[in-house]
Computed example of a mutant assay.
Amino acid sequence: MKELATGHTLGVKSVETAIEQMQTWPRKGPMLKAAYPICYGVMEGKHTVDEARLAFEAAAKEAKVWRAE
Results as ranks from 00 to 15, higher is better:
residue 6 T to A: 15
residue 17 T to I: 09
residue 19 I to C: 08
residue 23 Q to P: 08
residue 3 E to C: 12
residue 10 L to C: 10
residue 17 T to R: 06
residue 37 P to K: 02
residue 61 K to Y: 02
residue 31 M to Y: 05
residue 58 A to G: 08
residue 36 Y to G: 03
residue 2 K to F: 10
residue 52 A to P: 00
residue 43 M to D: 13
residue 48 T to N: 06
residue 63 A to K: 01
residue 58 A to F: 07
residue 11 G to N: 02
residue 11 G to H: 05
residue 58 A to D: 07
residue 47 H to I: 00
residue 23 Q to A: 15
residue 57 E to V: 04
residue 48 T to I: 00
residue 53 R to W: 11
residue 15 V to G: 09
residue 21 Q to P: 03
residue 53 R to P: 06
residue 41 G to M: 00
residue 65 V to N: 03
residue 5 A to V: 13
residue 63 A to P: 01
residue 14 S to C: 12
residue 48 T to S: 15
residue 69 E to H: 07
residue 41 G to T: 00
residue 69 E to I: 06
residue 45 G to M: 11
residue 34 A to D: 14
residue 15 V to Q: 04
residue 51 E to Q: 11
residue 57 E to S: 00
residue 59 A to E: 00
residue 52 A to G: 04
residue 59 A to C: 01
residue 7 G to S: 04
residue 2 K to T: 11
residue 8 H to P: 05
residue 28 K to L: 13
residue 63 A to N: 03
residue 30 P to F: 12
residue 53 R to N: 15
residue 43 M to C: 09
residue 1 M to S: 14
residue 41 G to C: 02
residue 18 A to I: 09
residue 3 E to S: 13
residue 30 P to I: 11
residue 69 E to N: 06
residue 37 P to Y: 02
residue 20 E to V: 10
residue 37 P to T: 01
residue 54 L to T: 10
residue 28 K to A: 13
residue 36 Y to W: 14
residue 58 A to R: 10
